[in-house]
Nucleic acid binder design. Sequence first.
DNA 1: ATTTGTGTAAACTTAATGTTAACATGGAAA
DNA 2: TTTCCATGTTAACATTAAGTTTACACAAAT
Lengths: 225, 225
Amino acid sequence: METKGKRILIADDEPDILEIVSYNLGKEGYEVYTAKDGNEAIERAKQLNPDLIILDVMMPKKTGVEVCAILRSQSLFQDTMIIFLTALSDEASHIKGLETGADDYVSKPISPKVLVSRVNALFRRINKDDGKTLKIGNISIDPVKFIVEIEGKEVILAKKEFELLYLLASKPGRVFLRNEILSQVWGMDVIVGDRTIDVHIRKIRQKLGVDCITTVKGVGYKFEI
Amino acid sequence: METKGKRILIADDEPDILEIVSYNLGKEGYEVYTAKDGNEAIERAKQLNPDLIILDVMMPKKTGVEVCAILRSQSLFQDTMIIFLTALSDEASHIKGLETGADDYVSKPISPKVLVSRVNALFRRINKDDGKTLKIGNISIDPVKFIVEIEGKEVILAKKEFELLYLLASKPGRVFLRNEILSQVWGMDVIVGDRTIDVHIRKIRQKLGVDCITTVKGVGYKFEI
DNA sequence: ATTTGTGTAAACTTAATGTTAACATGGAAA
DNA sequence: TTTCCATGTTAACATTAAGTTTACACAAAT
């Protein structure tokens, strides 16, 4: 598996745990970052946009569950994987963690091997292939440089336009429903008018000059050459 | 979450466990199927193509790990989620399970609540709600791309036409009563005239150019090559 | 402070899609 | 054969979704 470049943020107030987990995940090839309390975790998460966040439940400033809830409410962290780390092995907190939107739950005392296994399993399943430059036909979409090139010519898109195009192009041919688009690009909680998506689609079509977005009436839009 | 229609196969040799797990998952809205040994698990998995398989590690005929390995080697089960259920709480088997390609691992004695939570968490993450591409003869119907291909040539259907065709083709040969078609495609509450279905059937026949929808007079329609 | 770019809303137009109604057809039963 | 009934066919019509344009609010840049 390709672990390289996968960013993991781990938050725990016990330096020993931070160290042992960092070491073991680092050995697997992950980029590991740390935070020592809830507030720092949120701050670093926003800076780093990690692929996975491992949260101790019992932390100063904010508990892991609180951090999770706060992050999950933001569209940026909708797809970020979260694992809880806790000494509480009781059932109630277990369920609460998963309901809050965590992807897994590991009880202390943790075995580094088990943790690494679980992390690998999560990454294997998700295989989040983001950040990659998409190349479809003569169109290339680079989310790092924030550039769209079409037949070698650079086209400048606004943020929302870019995100929308990137989403569609990430799975060429696949139809994205309007509410999928809304929740991915705008975020679940945001409410925008009916015509907003259309307007953005229009701008993209206009700027690209090439007809690569197909309307599937009553269903959604898809990227196609 | 929409749990309806998600199929779960659970394999365990202890009837008590089968029952309690079936009951609890059923209550959540999942369609639950059971198997009582490794061979039966494989057989039923092939029949049912479930979204999730819960495997007891210690089973007669074949162990859960063996079943997992066999299924994972087939492309059909590449994306099927698998959870192991085991009394062995030792680390070694834990890791081995995940390495074989399981998505999670739950130790006995299991708490139904914990299991249900984990199942929900897995489904929430994966959200494998895309329908499958149907392939009957030289016709393929892809609900993700919203495309019908016939002899490699793309045919564009409108939403209702597509839904209707997809319904019929989902069970080739089986006759769908007009009522069934109405409630599946239009929704139970919607009232439309008598000729509406016919008109849509006609359009599909016209667009496909191939006669694959058979009228069963006085009864309904069926998809057939 | 002014300009520029971006995102959203509103009003309106256009086009695709869905439905109806009227009539045609064709097969089965009387 | 004639009648009847379910379905096929067609075109008109209704409905709904999407496209378009303009305007405006807001934030960032100058």
